[in-house]
Computed example of a mutant assay.
Amino acid sequence: MRRIIISFACVSLLLWTAGLCAEPIQVQAIAVVDGDTIGVGPNRYRLVGYDTPEIKTPRRKVFADEKALATIAKERFIELLHIGLLDQTEVPCSWPADTVGTDDCNGGRKCGLLKLNGKNIGDTFIAEELAMPYVCGESRCPRMPKWSKIIKSQFPARRPE
């Protein structure tokens, strides 16, 4: 019985301290850059757990169909921010610690988690097919999704009959 009580106390303490990391945030404090990047004060955050199409990026050419879907994702993000309680947490990035905040790590962005009513906001984007799951490992991230291929497979061009 004593082990159960100690285990319960440890789990409760862990959950309580985990809750301290998340900070309620007002919608006015958030600047939406795109579907997976926000600005909060002087910091930009790459939100974890999902990836949305790009509006623009210096790393590659963004085609019109990707930019259009990215714009829809950004507009939806702005809508979602106004429908519930928001909590923002800075989380460790999957890159070496000495690269955090540099262009080598997320283009200078920190890593963050934004929850809407207690749920990762990215889950909503994934459910609405505006994002793909994108989960990094402990020390590296997978290749970025190829949005041009994803869009073609989800929205194939109509063929003349």
Rank of each mutant, 00 (worst) to 15 (best):
I121R: 02
E129N: 15
L80G: 03
R140N: 10
K56I: 12
T102H: 01
S12A: 15
T124E: 14
I72C: 04
E90I: 12
K115N: 04
L130W: 08
S12E: 10
A64D: 12
Y134A: 04
K56W: 13
G84W: 06
W16P: 00
L47V: 09
D103Q: 03
H82W: 11
R46E: 07
E79V: 15
N120K: 04
R76Q: 14
N106L: 06
V135A: 03
R140T: 11
D65T: 13
L20K: 09
F125E: 07
I126M: 12
A31I: 14
L69S: 06
L85R: 15
I25Q: 04
L86M: 10
G118D: 01
N43S: 15
G19H: 06
W95F: 07
D34Y: 11
T37V: 13
V32L: 06
E90D: 13
E90F: 07
R59I: 04
Q88R: 07
M132E: 15
E23Y: 11
G101V: 04
L81N: 06
C93W: 01
V62S: 06
Q28N: 13
I38S: 03
V62M: 06
P58V: 04
E138D: 09
A18V: 08
H82P: 00
P58G: 02
P42K: 12
T99N: 00
R76D: 06
T71R: 14
Y134F: 13
Q28I: 13
E128H: 08
D87V: 10
G107S: 04
K67V: 10
V48E: 07
T17P: 00
V40G: 02
L15A: 12
G112E: 00
G118E: 01
A70M: 13
K67Q: 14
T52Q: 03
A70R: 10
L14T: 10
I78T: 15
W16R: 05
R76T: 10
R109H: 02
D65N: 11
I121E: 04
D36S: 06
D36G: 05
L113N: 02
P133G: 06
D104S: 08
C21P: 00
N106P: 00
R140I: 07
N120I: 07
Y50G: 00
C21W: 11
A68Y: 09
N106W: 04
G35I: 05
Q28H: 12
G41S: 06
V135F: 01
A68F: 12
K74M: 14
L47K: 01
V100Q: 00
P133A: 09
I121H: 05
G19N: 09
R109C: 01
T17I: 12
A22K: 07
T124A: 14
G49W: 11
L15V: 12
E23S: 12
A70S: 14
L86V: 10
R143Y: 13
G39F: 03
E54V: 08
Q26E: 13
I38F: 03
D98S: 01
A68Q: 12
A22Y: 09
R76N: 10
G41P: 05
I72W: 07
T57F: 09
E75I: 15
N106S: 06
A29V: 06
L13K: 05
F63R: 08
I83H: 11
E138N: 09
D123H: 14
I126D: 09
V27M: 09
A70Q: 07
K115S: 03
R60P: 00
E128V: 08
L20W: 08
Q28S: 14
N117Q: 02
C136I: 04
S94F: 01
G84Y: 06
E90A: 15
G49R: 08
V32C: 05
L130E: 03
L116Y: 01
